[in-house]
């Protein structure tokens, strides 16, 4: 029975972590984008507008949970959770500290790339059940993009698994040496770009482009269900950044205890900020351009990285 209780506690803690991370992430994104556009961003509520997103969340929770009349009701109500849950689950294999990972499994890296792929189903369902053309097209585009970028992302993670000789994220982090970062720089770039694309974030946000598809697959959502879509985007952002920091950049390795945790947080924050800078700097990719990028540029790059690692490996 302790297993059930422990699992429930972990689940609640994970949900809380994602909620706080999403709150902070939205605030940080608004600040970063404001600086890029020579504005100040939120300033009124709390120090430097820190509680602005909390106020927004309270507003969203209090809003009426509208289900339009023409939608496929059960599927429509289920879809946001189907997007959110796998992304929340993927947090469980990330080593947040030197010797600690919530779930220490020998297939952790496979788990991290496999489980979020379930949320593609949620995206398709959201688009389908809304029953309008914008949402259906957005859902199809979003899903096509997500499964295309899964391949280079998996290959880039595979390069690290090959180098470390393990699929457990904690093992990979513990075996990290400083020259890994220059040797696997291509993999880091491929991972970075395909993570952005996998989250449907700008400049790869054509599936939810405001000007064309209103909001893509979640055009018909409002209130808390809309917020769950946004939360899964920021939860995915945090998960991808922490995983990247742990796998490609050595994570918390080298510093003991709390300092290690601070180190991995700093590295992840660098990745998060970079992703935001990319989003607010580059223009949006067209649908065909981003599929070309996935199949003709990123996948070959990831394969080249695999070859490089394969050449290095016998000399170690």
């Amino acid at each position: 029975m302790t297993g059930f209780v422990g699992g429930a506690v972990y689940g609640l803690a994970g949900g809380l972590v994602i909620a706080v991370a999403a709150l902070f992430g939205v605030w940080w994104e608004r600040k970063v984008s404001a600086r890029i556009q020579m504005r100040l961003g939120p300033t009124e509520i709390g120090p430097a507008g820190l509680f602005q997103t909390l106020a927004d969340t309270i507003k969203l929770v209090l809003k009426e949970d509208i289900t339009p009349r023409q939608v496929d009701r059960p599927l429509f109500r289920m879809a946001p959770l189907l997007v959110f849950t796998p992304i929340a689950m993927s947090l469980v294999v990330i080593p947040f500290a030197g010797g600690w990972v919530p779930l220490n499994t020998s297939v952790g890296m496979l788990f991290f790339v496999a489980v979020p792929s379930v949320s593609v189903i949620g995206v398709l369902l959201a688009g389908f059940s809304s029953g309008n053309t914008y949402a259906t097209l957005g859902g199809l585009r979003g899903a096509a993009q997500m499964i295309s970028y899964e391949l280079p992302r998996t290959l880039s993670v595979l390069a690290m698994a090959l180098l470390a000789g393990s699929l457990a994220p904690l093992e990979v982090m513990n075996r990290y040496e400083w020259w890994w970062t220059p040797a696997t720089f291509i993999a880091l770039i491929v991972y970075f770009i395909s993570s952005i694309a996998e989250l449907n974030r700008g400049p790869f946000d054509i599936p939810e482009a405001e000007s064309e598809l209103v909001a893509g697959y979640f055009a018909d959502y409002s209130g808390i269900r809309w917020a769950i879509f946004m939360m899964s985007e920021y939860g995915g952002l945090v998960a991808a950044s922490f995983f990247g920091a742990a796998i490609f950049m050595g994570g918390a390795q080298g510093l003991p205890g709390v300092f290690g945790v601070l180190l991995i947080f700093a590295k992840a924050l660098v990745l998060i900020t970079l992703m935001m800078l990319v989003k607010w700097t580059f223009p949006r990719f067209r649908s065909d351009q981003l599929l070309t990028l996935a199949w003709k540029v990123l996948t070959p790059m990831a394969l080249v990285q695999l070859v490089i690692v394969g050449v290095i490996l016998p000399w170690l």
């Binding site: 499994t105 020998s106 297939v107 496979l110 788990f111 790339v113 496999a114 489980v115 792929s117 379930v118 593609v120 189903i121 398709l124 369902l125 688009g127 389908f128 259906t136 859902g139 199809l140 899903a143 096509a144 499964i147 899964e150």
Partner: peptide
């Protein structure tokens, strides 16, 4: 059998089922 479970999710749910949904929607 954690590897088998993860592969099942990756290949069947994330791959085959998504392709089926694509076909249905199109």
């Amino acid at each position: 059998a954690s590897f088998l479970a993860t592969s099942e999710v990756f290949v069947y749910v994330g791959g085959v089922l998504v392709l089926m949904l694509f076909a249905i929607m199109l």
